[in-house]
Nucleic acid binder design. Structure first.
Lengths: 176, 176
DNA sequence: GGTAGACTATTTGATATTCAAACCTTCTCC
DNA sequence: GGAGAAGGTTTGAATATCAAATAGTCTACC
């Protein structure tokens, strides 16, 4: 690694180390102190607008439905999420944020807004374009790596292919 | 957030999400498949060269010594870490990486090198500059926030825990 | 129209990670 | 030499997660 790369690595580690803790502290100090970062993440997975099925939500979050069931239990108990069976297919359970859930969602989004704002504000148009292109490139690279390491063909780990697990991320988080 | 900012936010989340998983998968595929990311992190906290006390290590990792005791138990059992009492102060326990631990440490470091390399190589000078500037900015922002939320003056009386389970029970102390 | 097999969600049993608080051991200082 | 501080470990609890077993429900085929 040359000096440039060393610095990049160092910065990335620093950011990774601190960002989760910071987000957690921000949550625990606010009006929604009974939410963990993971729970907030679940709220994000459910999303602001549609009601989603458990499977869809689990796929979006890349966790099993079993894990999600437990998480939603707690969020329902705390009043952030509503559950209801789909009358058209009674196997299906739909989840949706309550008012309180939406409020928490929006409050948390502010943290991200603030971050992005601080990031992009000082850049002029040209620089913004470069930033975007750079991020796109990084994302593409990371996704490749991600797929590479997640691809079941690579090892004899046949178990988790199920289509559901990894696939549906690109599906619709947003239709705002 | 305007569209540009939304996209930046989305890309950052994607990158962040996938890097962690990628790291985990990389570990689980390599020669040290019995190490989790958290355990790898503990190894990094102990470090390659000195032997450190439990307290020092726990402080470096920002976890309690109780948590570290459990983590080190497992790492000793798996052969990555050595424990020994300090003869000069028999209260103190020193931990150090074994050969195997050092090997794992170095192998993991290679993963980071590779990642950064693949990340920065395809960028031209302009893009590299933007990437660096952006990372600096993110790091600065996160550190600010981190300090803000960690500063004891802010929290009046009760402070210190990263643990909001307890807060939830005691009813959380507002601040709005 | 009845049933076998597919699908959706929940439950169960297990492991990891974490904290606070209680508890030992050892040290230091009066 | 004893009191209290300091360093680690243990204990008890909560969260987060998975795989596998289970329970309802639906669909397609006969």
């Amino acid at each position: 690694m040359n000096d440039y790369e060393k610095r990049v690595n160092q910065l990335m580690l620093e950011i990774f180390d601190h960002i989760l803790v910071t987000e957690e502290k921000a949550l625990s100090r606010g009006n929604f102190s009974d939410l963990s970062v993971a729970e907030m993440h679940t709220l994000e997975g459910i999303g602001l607008y549609d009601s989603k099925t458990m499977s869809e939500t689990a796929a979006a979050l890349e966790i099993t439905t079993g894990t999600l069931t437990v998480a939603v239990d707690r969020l329902v108990r705390k009043g952030y999420v509503e559950r209801r069976r789909d009358p058209r297919d009674r196997r299906v359970v739909r989840v949706r944020l309550t008012k309180k859930g939406k409020l928490a969602y929006r409050m948390h989004a502010k943290f991200h807004t603030l971050l992005v704002d601080r990031l992009t504000n000082p850049l002029d148009k040209d620089q913004q374009q470069i930033l975007l292109a750079t991020l796109e490139r990084i994302a593409r690279f990371v996704n490749e790596q991600y797929k590479h390491y997640t691809d079941p063909a690579e090892t004899a780990t046949e178990v988790k292919s199920k289509n559901n697990q990894v696939r549906a991320i690109t599906g619709g988080q947003e239709n705002a």
